[in-house]
Design a protein around this nucleic acid. Structure first.
Lengths: 210, 210
DNA sequence: TTTTATCAGTAACCTATGTTACAGAAAAAA
DNA sequence: TTTTTTCTGTAACATAGGTTACTGATAAAA
């Protein structure tokens, strides 16, 4: 673990804290597509993402999803933070977008460190700030963009976190993430292809205009 | 100030902290409709709301608004928190929905107290949690509700924070808050009136089905 | 290989929401 | 009072996005 930890968080935390994280944190690997956290769950430990990417989703009253944003290495889930500290249930769902590695910190420790390490306190507050910003960006996307723009942004974001301009995804999966229907997605994708912004294949899409 | 402070925050903070707040905090009154914070502004002090209500807005690229939520007494603005701590610019606009009273805390103090008072730390983290929840609710409203439902929810929320079932507002103002057009609002309001959920007057609306 | 399931393309239609235009009522200003 | 401005109602139309239905292509299973 030490290497992953140093690489991603070394510049943030002092050695003493890194040692502590190393001691009490447990290493966890999540394969692509697997659920990390679901809505309504209580959370007993806080994840620090060291590699991979996580998709954060909100659910409507019918159980249909809506993507909020992706997390990447160096991020933590502020929702989880919130839940840990407040003893509340998770309000979001988190799914591994790619194979991911996490360090899990027990709730008790993360609270203790808040008083003990300035750098940890700063990290937590920073995480909240980043998550608020991401949520605001999600709101902008949902409220201000038209669906074709949202779709293209989604494809670009997805290509970004996957570090690849060809993304493996079906139209149905996109429709679920964007909280719309498959037919609509197919229609708009076709238009994007005609405009030369993407290239369509079965089960995958190449994003050209990155 | 002491009374307002005790009443709203007495159960949260220990006496010593209340004394400190009383010493360094400055009292501020904002009349209805006045701007508290605007997008892009740097923030030098953190507001604790002791009476009244604040409307929090997001802006699109044309300068048009979208309401996110209302703050009420006992709340603070987590966006402001974020900005203070991170030295970042405000990402939202805050306007007094009703005449409001605030206690302003200098940034330096709020940082100092984070290390010094457990109750302050808890308050700050709690505020973040609440704001994340409100933003998620805003997302639900925008993404999952149809406009007539959103409109009715808006009217109910507004009646709530104004402590009055008759709200003073024009259709144009509603349209701005909901990021839609006046004609659409008039149309949907008329339908709500026919359904017996509201009663329309010039410059005001009575919310019946609260 | 044959059969079945999944995926993508497209047409035809429906509905919610946005837009333009105009008119009358009420309020404010002159 | 007369004039002007603001506010609301409504019609007529435009467009984005959602729905249903069907197709052929590809891949997976038998």
């Amino acid at each position: 673990m030490t290497n992953d930890l140093k690489e991603n968080y070394g510049y943030l935390f002092e050695d003493e804290l890194l040692q502590e994280i190393n001691k009490v944190g447990t290493y966890k690997e999540i394969p692509e597509g697997h659920k990390l956290i679901d809505i309504g769950e209580y959370i007993r430990s806080m994840p620090l993402l060291v590699s991979g990417a996580i998709k954060i989703l909100r659910e409507d009253e019918n159980g249909d999803d809506l993507i909020l944003y992706f997390l990447e290495k160096g991020d933590t889930c502020a929702m989880t933070l919130s839940c840990c500290l407040g003893q509340a249930k998770s309000e979001i769902r988190a799914i591994a977008e790619t194979d991911s590695k996490l360090i899990m910190i027990p709730v008790a420790k993360m609270e203790e460190w808040l008083g003990k390490y300035k750098s940890w306190q700063r990290f937590i507050l920073n995480s909240y700030h980043n998550r608020l910003s991401e949520l605001l960006e999600a709101i902008d996307t949902i409220a201000f963009l038209k669906l074709d723009e949202r779709l293209f942004k989604y494809l670009k974001d997805k290509a970004m976190v996957n570090h690849h301009d060809v993304i493996r995804v079906t139209h149905q999966e996109i429709a679920s993430d964007l909280h719309t229907s498959r037919v609509v997605v197919s229609r708009l994708l076709k238009t994007l292809e005609i405009d030369g912004k993407i290239k369509l294949y079965r089960n995958s899409i190449k994003v050209i205009d990155l």
